[in-house]
Design a protein around this nucleic acid. Structure first.
Lengths: 165, 165
DNA sequence: TTGACATTTCATTTTTTTTTGAAATAGTTG
DNA sequence: CAACTATTTCAAAAAAAAATGAAATGTCAA
């Protein structure tokens, strides 16, 4: 637990941003700590080292480390080297769109790929099991899935692209 | 726990669909049970009553009831009345896009609205706290948030609209 | 009105996810 | 190389989310 003396008081604006991003991130299924860290960095002009982030937010080092890893992988945070200090300093990538775009690429697209395989499997199964009384019905449903699949495969990369600009 | 005699054997195709939709729904942050129910209904030509759904999936009535409520609210499921039976029968709305569209409207848009208010609050706070040394910096960041906000407010309803067609 | 059944609600239990904290690792400096 | 510090890892604890099951509610029909 950090001593009050070590932690600069968290400003009202920071609190507001933390709240805002905790919500936004949780919409993307990210844990609270990730939103907190990003929120704190969002209104910080100077880059912050991990231990200060953890102290300000009252997080353990473990959480901070894991949260920063996530943010780095989403390109939501940049690492800065500060002369004469061994620690890594972090800065928020202020274009949140970048984050959304990486999120689509990293978290959603793989599921889409996987979905394609599954639909193929469904077709195989239906092909094998002949003479089911509702074969036609199932065939139609599979067709619908394929259309959904195709539409998403077009739409999502486009969206990811749009966001980056 | 349902007796084996009450449960028609779940077909391979049904299993595949259940798996598929459990994943897809979990991407939207929906609990497992919701995906299971929708998956089961997706390849069922005949509407099914809640007790049969619960039996086939090995879910409690409570879960089935809650899951169907969610699916109804997303317009992912239609209720059918069967003559001479008191139970409600459920049918999957096969256009999954409808579900995505309701999801955007019901789950995401409210957060957006809320976000707008929060950004306004940030501006108020910044307005009050004069002479912070990085006031300009914060002002810029708030501007970025507003742009993100505006872009999403345009994009998401458009997307929801596109999906419905 | 009463009984039979379908459905919902909700306190409790179970499961899953997230956080913690301490140990392991890595890296730098004297 | 040895001492020090920053960071990561991971088993265990805590917290959050979901499922259960039994009681409450609603609804129809005899």
């Amino acid at each position: 637990m950090p001593l009050a003396s070590e932690t600069t008081k968290t400003s009202e604006l920071e609190l507001e941003a933390i709240d805002y991003f905790v919500r936004l991130m949780s919409l993307l299924g990210m844990p609270r700590s990730v939103g907190e860290i990003y929120g704190l960095l969002y209104f910080s002009r100077d880059p912050l080292p991990m231990d200060m982030i953890a102290a300000k937010l009252g997080l353990s080092m473990g959480s901070a480390s894991q949260g920063l890893r996530t943010l780095r992988s989403l390109k939501a945070v940049k690492v800065t080297y500060v002369l004469g200090d061994r620690r890594d300093y972090y800065l928020a990538e202020s274009e949140f769109r970048h984050l959304l775009s990486s999120f689509i690429k990293e978290e959603i697209m793989p599921h889409l790929e996987n979905g394609k395989l599954r639909i193929e499997r469904m077709q195989q199964i239906l092909g094998r099991e002949t003479e089911s009384y509702d074969e036609d019905f199932c065939r139609h449903r599979i067709e619908k899935l394929k259309r959904l699949q195709k539409a998403s495969s077009r739409l999502l990369p486009t969206l990811a692209g749009l966001l980056k600009l």
